[in-house]
Design a protein around this nucleic acid. Structure first.
Lengths: 361, 361
DNA sequence: CTGTTAGCGCCTTCAT
DNA sequence: ATGAAGGCGCTAACAG
């Protein structure tokens, strides 16, 4: 739908043929101009552009043509001011430099853009950013919906958000209060730990990764550990559970700590791939082989996991973003569908960081 | 500036004390309301809020107080419509799931937000997205400036962008036409290759990483290879130069290809850390040791590089983002400073993926 | 189905 | 220094 009207022989340069609009005047035309040029009234022009009912196909066509020809775009401000929507949705993320969030936002942006919605990005990295966001509500009056990515919204925050008076959707997190899409962290954790158990491990350590700046961490991933061990009749040695901040270096340090306990674990279950990879580094540095001496499994299927031959539990990140964005669109469209909470499946990906435990010496 | 007026004993919950505004009505007050409540005229109220001249300190104070008390916020739409600025800047990126871009955008957002500007995110992943962006100019009338991150703008695109009639700043790329901030890719490449040369390598391969969807790739990183070899009096064996798409798997494949040439290289210079890490995997998989048998160096200092002990050339990503955002602010502020092009330094980080070449067998 | 008429909330001259 | 009045560009009721 962006190819038509080639009224000139486009020179075959790379990004070359913008149907000659280069010389057209800036977007200084108003709806009135378009209406006049199309020979219709203001209202009709507006309706035509907004795909609103009550315009004959022929008329609509004409208006759209004129608009297209002059590369006209409505002024979002005026539109909004007059009672329309903003055409924007706020995407709130706690991180961006981490693959998970980047991929998520990428997918979200893609879907939203296809629907002609703009993405207003809000990064709430640390506690202060986060407080500031919910306190000042910078998105107020600026968006039609808010898409919260990868963190749990606390009750006081929820109340603040409610002031925006717009739909809120959550992605990559489990939310009791908002429509959301995510994965079952407990199930993911179970898949990881069960894999270790099925390989014959019994001394299984866990490196919990928490995000100090975010109120909640995926509790499912920890719960799964205990549940899986219990189900297998294995005891939990609390010394084999260490909690650290999210991150590779943190994982490395946590692993070092784990190695100080008397009975060294034969397997390690890390809450994320980054953490797991850090753990692997520590193991290798002190001369332990992975997986011969120690098995390591992560969660996420970070692109890096494949490169480092890490066994992990994959979660569909892009898919989560897509679905969340689509959910948002549906809600915006006024389609309150039954599917208000989507849980996508996770999948164990066995590579070469896990194996049967070494024979007892 | 966000702590004051605690007129209630905030319960000590996590994000708990939003000075009671939870119960205050949504931002439904208008300038007129504020003006009335403050006992002044519309114009005065407006001037006071906008920090515009022509208002007595006392009056201004009063207006600001009333506004604050009622947590009033101007309607961006109305403001803009009436001639103000949009308070938004478009950030255009080709990727988001890659660390480099995520970190960059994170930094940019942070600076811009501190200046009370909103970030409109545009992701131009593939060629089609990109064409679409420049053709439709979705940012038209929506932003005060455009910040292009990590890709070169072609001439036809530049012409389109000019239609927006706003400032354009480039980050992470070398642009002839826009104010920009970035690093010297040629210098970075030189540092990497020189390091290998200084270790005694002479059979040095290069894995060029190009982004097929972006018109240009950092030519500096390739040029540096030839320049450095030439400077050292080393011949270039074209079979030792392979070009691939950006990415770990791609790097791994490229390395496999390099291993098919008769005289195996003793060192590999990869255009990026991801690519380098892929190369390392290939080497290890076929039983070659890094760095004993083959040295590998990348560029970027991706967080993963530290975790995989990869020698690399670090570039200040966050810094680039920050500076770019600040440059944008300056331009917006009408401060046409001398510093329109900032080049940040890169730095060799030696870890354990490089060593002297094995002794000739 | 289409043209016309009010505002939406604010900024900006203009007087005062 | 301040108040009053005219639009900014558009959408949503209305009339036809």
């Amino acid at each position: 739908m962006a190819q038509g009207n080639d009224e000139r022989v486009a020179e075959k340069r790379f990004h070359g043929d913008y149907h000659g609009a280069v010389s057209s005047p800036p977007g200084r035309l108003t709806l009135a101009d378009i209406a006049r040029l199309a020979g219709v009234g203001l209202g009709t022009a507006s309706r035509a552009l907004n795909n609103a009912p009550g315009v004959s196909p022929a008329t609509r066509r004409r208006v759209l043509d004129v608009a297209e020809r002059h590369s006209y775009v409505v002024s979002p401000e005026a539109s909004r001011l007059a009672g329309g929507s903003t055409g924007r949705v706020a995407v709130v993320v706690p991180h961006l430099s981490r693959w998970f969030f980047g991929a998520m936002v990428e997918a979200i942006e893609s879907v939203l853009r296809d629907a002609d919605l703009d993405v207003l990005l809000y990064h709430v990295g640390d506690l202060q950013d986060r407080r500031d966001f919910f306190e000042r509500l910078p998105a107020r009056r600026k968006v039609d919906a808010v898409l919260v990515v990868g963190f749990g919204v606390e009750e006081p925050e929820r109340q603040r958000l409610a002031l925006l008076g717009v739909q809120v959707v959550a992605a990559g997190g489990r939310h009791a209060v908002y429509p959301h899409v995510g994965v079952d962290d407990a199930e993911a954790g179970r898949q990881a730990v069960d894999h270790l158990i099925s390989l014959g491990h019994s001394a299984i350590a866990m490196i919990e990764a928490v995000d100090p700046d975010q109120a909640t961490s995926p509790p499912g991933r920890s719960a799964a550990y205990h549940a899986a061990l219990a189900a297998a009749g294995l005891p939990v040695d609390e010394r084999l559970v260490v909690r650290t901040r999210w991150g590779g270096e943190e994982g490395a340090a946590a692993m070092a700590q784990l190695l100080t306990v008397p009975d060294r674990p034969t397997a390690v279950y890390a809450h994320s791939d980054e953490v797991a990879i850090g753990a692997v580094r520590t193991l290798r540095r002190i001369g332990l082989r992975v997986p011969q001496d120690v098995s390591v499994v992560g969660i996420d299927d970070h692109p890096l996991a494949a490169l480092t031959d890490l066994t992990t539990v994959a979660q569909p990140v892009t898919e989560q973003g897509r679905v969340a964005a689509e959910l948002t669109l549906a809600l915006l469209r006024g389609t309150p569908p039954g599917l208000q909470a989507v849980t996508l499946p996770t999948r164990l990906v066995v590579r070469h960081s896990t194996a049967a435990p070494p024979r007892r010496g």
